[in-house]
Computed example of a mutant assay.
Amino acid sequence: MRTVAQLFALLTGALEPLFATSATAVAIVVATMCVRTLLHPLARAGVRGEKARARLAPETAGLRKRHAGDPERLRRALLELHVREGVSPLAGIAPTLLQLPVFFVMYRLFTAPRVGGEPNGLLADRLGPAPLGGRWTDALADGGVLGAPGLVYLALFGVLAAVALWSYRRARAAVDPALEQTVPGAAGLVKVLPLLSFGTLVTAALVPLAAGLYLATTTVWTAVERALLHRGPTAAARTGAAGRARRSGPNRS
């Protein structure tokens, strides 16, 4: 922890001539972007896995139908299919799992009163009028929702809400309708899982501002990254286009 604090101090010192009292906040954004850059190859691998699983969806549905009465045989058949096609079910969640230690370090760094036996000077650093070690409840007590610190949190929540809404709509649009019809329980998961993107709002309201700033940076990065890697029609759009093509085929002259 002491080493991380020292690295942050060095980065903050380099940024201070440009950003003055908000240098530590900018250092959090820069550090987060560096971490996400290092994890980008894993994100690309995860998207490749998602596309491969979408490509294999018809074959997967056939296996589920064929082995509906034998769960163990179905599990082996799906595993053989994934191994043969080089698809890993964990590829898509690897970047998220690897970010958790970074988030916990950020949380600890801006909540510990002492680091390496010395007072934690980072707790006094600010983003505008709001201390990076403070929480939303502190801002509410210091001027209310529209007070100076409260406005910082409103801006943070606005960014997180916009990204969450965008992610929710994209997740819903990316669902292949055939999946809900062929996979047991998929309909319920399809409705619930996209809502998890709004969990960042709850988290940001409970953790120190520094950790909330990390969340905002990494969620914006994720949204842009996935938009670029998933360029092209969604699964639902492809399915609808295929259905329209089949319906219109016999009518062609």
Rank of each mutant, 00 (worst) to 15 (best):
R169H: 14
G13E: 03
G116F: 06
G249K: 13
P131E: 11
E118M: 11
A31R: 02
V192G: 00
G86D: 05
P58L: 07
T32L: 02
V115D: 02
V145W: 15
W166I: 00
T32W: 03
L213T: 10
P177A: 10
S167I: 00
R172Q: 14
T234I: 04
A14E: 02
A171P: 00
R2E: 15
T234N: 06
Q99K: 02
T137R: 14
A210W: 07
T24V: 09
P58F: 08
R108I: 00
V202Y: 14
S167Y: 00
V29Q: 03
L229Y: 10
G212W: 09
A245G: 02
T21G: 05
L100R: 01
A77H: 10
P41K: 12
G232P: 10
N120H: 07
V152R: 03
A161C: 11
L122T: 01
W221V: 07
L18H: 05
Y153K: 01
L127E: 06
R252P: 02
A43M: 14
A245P: 01
R44N: 01
L7R: 13
T203Y: 07
Q6R: 15
V105H: 01
G116Q: 03
E80H: 12
V145F: 14
L11F: 07
A204F: 13
R114I: 00
R108S: 14
A25R: 04
A164H: 11
S248M: 10
G13R: 12
K191D: 13
A25C: 07
G232I: 09
E16N: 04
A31K: 01
L97T: 02
A148T: 02
P177V: 11
V145K: 00
W136T: 03
V202L: 15
R169K: 12
T234P: 05
G240M: 11
P71E: 11
G46K: 08
R246F: 01
A23K: 05
T96P: 00
M1L: 05
